[in-house]
Simulated scan of single mutants.
Amino acid sequence: MTIASHLVELRRKHETLSEMVEKAQRSPATDALKIAELKKQKLRLKEEIERLSH
């Protein structure tokens, strides 16, 4: 896998997590810990994308 294709995959996963966070925040049944975990995963992906982009 090239770095470019890896970045595309990471960005796709980041976007998916963004959608999951938004959906979870709109749902009153979702607990704050689940939302926090999704946000942490999203941040880790963002940091990895930035690291590989430079």
Score class of each variant (00 low, 15 high):
3 I>R: 11
3 I>C: 09
3 I>S: 12
3 I>M: 07
4 A>V: 14
4 A>C: 00
5 S>F: 14
5 S>E: 03
5 S>M: 06
5 S>K: 14
7 L>M: 03
7 L>A: 02
7 L>Q: 00
8 V>E: 15
8 V>H: 12
8 V>P: 03
9 E>G: 05
9 E>M: 07
9 E>K: 05
10 L>N: 02
11 R>D: 06
11 R>A: 12
11 R>C: 06
11 R>Y: 05
12 R>K: 15
12 R>V: 06
12 R>S: 15
13 K>H: 05
13 K>P: 01
13 K>V: 05
13 K>G: 03
13 K>I: 09
13 K>R: 13
14 H>G: 01
14 H>R: 10
15 E>T: 12
15 E>S: 15
15 E>M: 12
16 T>L: 14
16 T>W: 11
17 L>V: 00
17 L>K: 05
17 L>R: 03
18 S>A: 04
18 S>R: 00
18 S>C: 06
18 S>L: 08
18 S>I: 00
19 E>N: 12
19 E>Q: 10
20 M>H: 06
22 E>K: 08
22 E>Q: 01
22 E>N: 13
22 E>C: 05
23 K>T: 09
23 K>Y: 01
23 K>D: 04
24 A>P: 03
25 Q>R: 03
25 Q>V: 02
25 Q>I: 01
25 Q>W: 00
26 R>H: 12
26 R>T: 09
26 R>L: 02
26 R>A: 12
27 S>Q: 01
27 S>I: 00
27 S>G: 04
28 P>F: 03
28 P>A: 08
28 P>N: 04
28 P>W: 04
28 P>M: 02
29 A>R: 15
29 A>G: 03
30 T>G: 00
30 T>C: 05
30 T>P: 01
30 T>K: 06
31 D>T: 09
31 D>M: 04
32 A>I: 04
33 L>S: 09
33 L>N: 05
33 L>V: 05
34 K>M: 14
34 K>N: 08
35 I>L: 00
35 I>R: 04
36 A>T: 04
38 L>I: 07
38 L>W: 13
38 L>P: 10
38 L>S: 10
39 K>E: 13
40 K>I: 15
40 K>D: 14
40 K>C: 10
40 K>N: 15
40 K>Q: 09
41 Q>A: 07
41 Q>D: 10
41 Q>L: 08
41 Q>E: 12
42 K>N: 11
42 K>R: 15
42 K>L: 09
42 K>M: 08
43 L>F: 13
43 L>D: 07
43 L>H: 06
43 L>T: 12
44 R>V: 11
44 R>K: 13
44 R>H: 13
44 R>C: 11
44 R>D: 14
44 R>A: 14
45 L>D: 10
45 L>Q: 07
45 L>M: 03
45 L>S: 08
45 L>N: 15
46 K>D: 08
46 K>F: 08
47 E>C: 06
48 E>R: 13
48 E>Q: 11
48 E>K: 08
48 E>A: 11
49 I>H: 10
49 I>M: 13
49 I>D: 07
50 E>T: 02
50 E>N: 10
52 L>R: 05
53 S>I: 07
53 S>D: 09
54 H>A: 15
54 H>T: 08
54 H>K: 14
54 H>F: 11
